[in-house]
Design a protein around this nucleic acid. Structure first.
Lengths: 197, 197
DNA sequence: GCGTCTATATTTAGTAG
DNA sequence: TCTACTAAATATAGACG
């Protein structure tokens, strides 16, 4: 009955993993409320486990929505910027690259927006009026595209931070890329900045 | 040097509150990563404190976005439904009321959507093309409206669950309400279900 | 205000019922 | 599986520099 020191790795045994999850999840939620009451802070947790169909949240679905609405208002750009700064990753060399990246990212976003505008969802809006399902569809579509771009940006940022080759090829402002998976409307010119290796 | 047992209440002394916050925040984040690695759980935390301008997040801004994109896909209705069921709040009497509430909520949402469609934002989209700022504006507007509705629904749900009066007046399907704060387009008929006392 | 220390409070792994 | 238990491990309040 001598208790081992926890080995910090995935617990392969299913039942003890579940037991651990339940205990620690409970402990975590408790700590969360303690911190919240002791220091009066505004926070939320969302946890997906295979043991429940719905995510487990703290403090409540409504509370999560409130914190989330605050969080969503911060543009992604600022988040990225802040994250990068905080971790002190930017050398003098890479600052320029990141600036370019931002500019191209912004341009790409605007172009994406315009494209989405010309997709049939938009036509539906105009002709039949905006409904709930369509808003949802658009949201999902945008999220997907954004996350694609983010993935590509991150992949690129990693490369450019650690290899000379990528940085120098970026400075020529255009890098060959596999085509984006987006459906292109026929009428729209395609002038994305492709700078992800 | 005898350590007191923690009194679970807001710490009024500013500096010790900050100290506690820092310690406990650190502990929480640690517990979070432990749980995540031990049980392979997909989760995120967002914490707003007065000590940092940006929220402190776990596991990372990107990780949070990923969890959030999963979370957003669950319609609010389902969240509410699930929450209510889980907490076993529904008596036989209130089930009908909640069903009505859902239906009216759905109707109201559709009407809101249609209204937004007729606001000048929409005209701008059609005439000038969709841009980033407009998407943002629309998002914020929708969020605000949604959260208004949610607040009202919660206020109502509380009342109907605990007072007979509210339940019985709801069963007549219409309750007098202060007017909603939404700007109404002149051309749109206004037929919201107003059932929040 | 911040980092370090240490005695105590709290959490939890493993076990037993 | 779940609950209860308990000793080991961990977190942290308060003190100090």
């Amino acid at each position: 009955m001598i208790r081992k020191k926890v080995k910090l790795a995935y617990i392969t045994n299913g039942s003890s993993r579940k037991a651990t999850y339940k205990k620690r999840n409970k402990g975590l939620m408790k700590k969360m409320s303690e911190l919240s009451t002791l220091c009066g802070i505004d926070a939320c947790v969302i946890m997906y486990s295979p043991y429940k169909s719905q995510p487990e949240v703290w403090p409540s679905p409504k509370g999560v929505q409130q914190v989330l609405s605050k969080f969503k208002m911060i543009p992604k750009m600022e988040q990225r910027n802040n994250m990068v700064n905080q971790e002190s990753f930017l050398s003098q060399r890479t600052i320029k690259v990141v600036e370019q990246l931002k500019k191209h990212c912004k341009d790409n976003r605007e172009k994406e927006m315009t494209q989405v505008m010309f997709n049939n969802i938009c036509n539906k809006w105009v002709i039949h009026g905006l409904n709930f399902g369509d808003i949802n569809d658009l949201n999902l579509l945008l999220d997907e595209k954004m996350s694609n771009i983010d993935k590509r940006m991150d992949a690129f940022a990693m490369t450019s931070l650690y290899t000379q080759e990528a940085s120098s090829s970026l400075s020529s402002s255009m890098v060959a890329l596999p085509p984006m998976t987006m459906v292109m409307p026929k009428a729209m010119p395609r002038t994305y900045h492709n700078h992800f290796p």
